[in-house]
Design a protein around this nucleic acid. Structure first.
Lengths: 152, 152
DNA sequence: TCTTTTGTTTAATTAAGTTTGAACATACTG
DNA sequence: CAGTATGTTCAAACTTAATTAAACAAAAGA
């Protein structure tokens, strides 16, 4: 089975789009991420809409989401009024930071519950605490990888 | 603000239900998980439907999902035809295993793409490989925590 | 055997989230 | 200034996933 590089690229973009849904990203944002992982060159706002075959509104939403997660950055090009986008520096460290942050938030929510459990309910406190610790250790581990990636 | 333990329990269950959606669990499965984290005693199938105020069909689906992820186990009680459920042993290690497995699968998908990129496309290969490595390191880290939790 | 209980399956409904398209605001161009 | 290009916002349309309710199968009692 022979496949052109354009086909491989297109398949990759779609694949990342599907998988991104696992990470709580809309499909278009995932496809966009795949595109930016593949392409080195910055891409214009309008070209994104054309390449991904979606509305400009969707591009606006997806770029905002990816920017908020610090996975892409918006750049300017001299002589072109359009916004350009490209993958951010250390995008995977940023992604890990985001996960660690989310997990830390979850842990805080659970800890908030623990504080409301009467002290004499030792069994329940222990069980809920074990659950909170689980999120804590995950957040810690991912935060650590993020740091490792950052200095690479 | 004073709150009965029943209210705290109920809030906790709802809270986990909402947060579980982040993990790709249906809300009912998440609420059920919260319930099992809180309660030590095994709970009957019928009681689950009543306590969570959902249909028996939903209980069937949610228990299946949580069993597949090895987070709860189905147990029998002498003198009662109903199925009983309770939190599994080392549930958080199981949860981490599941995440690690999912991430490993994602990595494999990306690696599959790498194999189709022509060898002379060094830049693209490097970029996609960095993305695959990111999933690899995450899977590795979570797998490691899972082991640590298991021997605790 | 007939009825009841229990849990699963599936078709239909409901709810939730995504995507679009039009309206809008802003800035640029001639 | 008028017209065009650019990006955002938001209501509506669409899509997908979750939930229910009813039908079903299996097992237990009577």
């Amino acid at each position: 089975m022979t496949q052109s590089i354009e086909e491989t690229r297109s398949e990759f973009i779609e694949k990342i789009g599907v998988m991104a849904q696992t990470d709580g990203l809309p499909r278009i944002a995932g496809r966009m991420l795949g595109l930016f992982v593949w392409d080195v060159e910055a891409i214009a706002f309008g070209d994104l809409a054309e390449q991904l075959q979606v509305s400009r509104g969707s591009i606006s939403t997806a770029t905002r989401i990816l920017e908020e997660r610090r996975l892409i950055k918006r750049v300017a090009k001299p002589g072109d009024r359009q916004d350009y986008f490209q993958l951010a520096e250390n995008p995977y460290a940023k992604m890990l930071d985001y996960y660690a942050e989310t997990l830390g938030h979850t842990q805080a929510e659970i800890t908030d519950t623990i504080d409301r459990i009467p002290a004499d309910e030792t069994v329940i406190r222990a069980r809920v605490t074990a659950y909170a610790d689980f999120y804590k250790s995950m957040a810690g581990a991912l935060g650590k990888i993020a740091k490792d990636l950052d200095r690479a």
